[in-house]
Lab assay of single mutants.
Amino acid sequence: GREWTEQETLLLLEALEMYKDDWNKVSEHVGSRTQDECILHFLR
Rank of each mutant, 00 (worst) to 15 (best):
K25R: 12
L43G: 15
L10V: 10
R33I: 00
S27W: 02
E17C: 01
V26A: 11
C38K: 09
T9Y: 10
D36H: 09
L13Y: 06
K20H: 11
L43F: 13
L40F: 09
T34H: 04
R33W: 04
G1F: 08
L10Y: 04
V26S: 03
L43W: 12
S32C: 08
E8T: 02
K20M: 08
K25L: 12
Y19R: 02
A15Y: 01
E37F: 00
H29I: 03
G31H: 03
S27R: 11
E3G: 13
Q35E: 09
T9P: 03
E6V: 06
V26M: 10
E14Y: 03
I39S: 15
G1R: 04
N24G: 12
E3Q: 13
Q7G: 09
S27V: 11
D36F: 05
E8V: 00
E17Q: 10
V26Q: 03
E14A: 11
E6T: 08
E6F: 05
T9D: 09
L12F: 11
G31I: 07
S32M: 09
Q7V: 06
Q35P: 08
V30W: 00
L12Y: 08
E28S: 06
K25W: 02
D36K: 07
E8L: 00
K20L: 02
E14G: 05
L11Y: 05
R33F: 02
F42H: 15
L40T: 14
E28P: 03
K25H: 09
F42D: 09
L16M: 14
T9L: 09
F42R: 15
E17V: 03
N24T: 10
N24C: 11
G31E: 11
E37P: 00
Y19E: 06
V30A: 00
S32L: 06
D21N: 14
V30T: 04
E37A: 05
D21Q: 12
D21A: 09
R33K: 11
E28M: 00
D21V: 04
Q7M: 15
T9M: 11
N24M: 12
K20W: 01
L10K: 13
F42I: 06
L10N: 06
D21S: 09
D21K: 15
T9F: 11
D22I: 01
Y19Q: 03
E14W: 06
L16G: 09
V30P: 02
F42V: 08
M18T: 12
D21L: 03
M18R: 13
E28R: 10
I39R: 15
N24P: 11
Q7T: 12
K20C: 04
E14Q: 09
L43M: 13
Y19L: 01
W4V: 07
F42A: 11
L10I: 10
L10G: 14
S27D: 02
S27I: 07
M18F: 08
D36E: 10
M18G: 06
H41T: 07
M18P: 02
D22C: 08
G1D: 14
R2C: 12
I39L: 13
R33V: 04
L40Q: 14
K20I: 10
L10A: 10
W23L: 03
R33P: 02
K20E: 09
H41E: 07
L13G: 12
L12E: 08
R33T: 03
S32R: 07
L10C: 14
D36A: 10
F42G: 15
W23Q: 02
E8F: 01
D22G: 04
V26R: 03
E28N: 06
R2L: 01
L12P: 01
L16R: 15
L11G: 07
K20N: 08
S27K: 13
E28D: 15
L16P: 01
L12A: 06
E17M: 01
M18D: 09
D36I: 04
H29Y: 10
C38Q: 03
A15P: 00
E8G: 00
G1W: 05
L16I: 12
E17Y: 04
D21Y: 05
Q35Y: 07
T34D: 10
Q35I: 07
I39G: 10
L11A: 08
L43N: 14
Y19M: 02
E17D: 12
R33H: 06
N24A: 11
T34R: 13
T5R: 06
N24W: 07
W23R: 01
E3A: 10
K20Y: 04
H41R: 10
S32Q: 11
E3L: 10
E28Y: 04
D21T: 07
S27E: 13
L11V: 09
V26L: 03
Y19S: 04
W4P: 00
L40K: 13
E8Q: 08
N24V: 12
H29A: 03
S32K: 11
G31K: 12
D36N: 06
R33E: 05
A15K: 00
S27M: 06
E6P: 06
W4N: 05
Y19P: 00
D21G: 09
Q35F: 10
E8I: 01
C38A: 02
S32A: 10
M18L: 12
F42E: 15
K20R: 06
F42C: 05
M18Y: 08
T34S: 08
L40R: 13
G31Y: 03
W23I: 06
E8R: 00
L12C: 04
G31R: 11
L16C: 14
L12I: 06
K20S: 07
T9V: 09
R2Y: 10
M18Q: 12
L16F: 06
L40I: 08
L13I: 11
E14C: 01
T34L: 06
D22L: 03
E6C: 09
Q7P: 04
D22V: 03
Q35G: 12
N24D: 11
S27H: 12
E37T: 01
Y19N: 07
I39W: 05
Y19C: 12
G1N: 14
H29G: 00
K20Q: 05
E3M: 09
V30E: 00
Y19G: 08
Y19H: 12
L43S: 15
T9I: 14
W4K: 11
E3V: 15
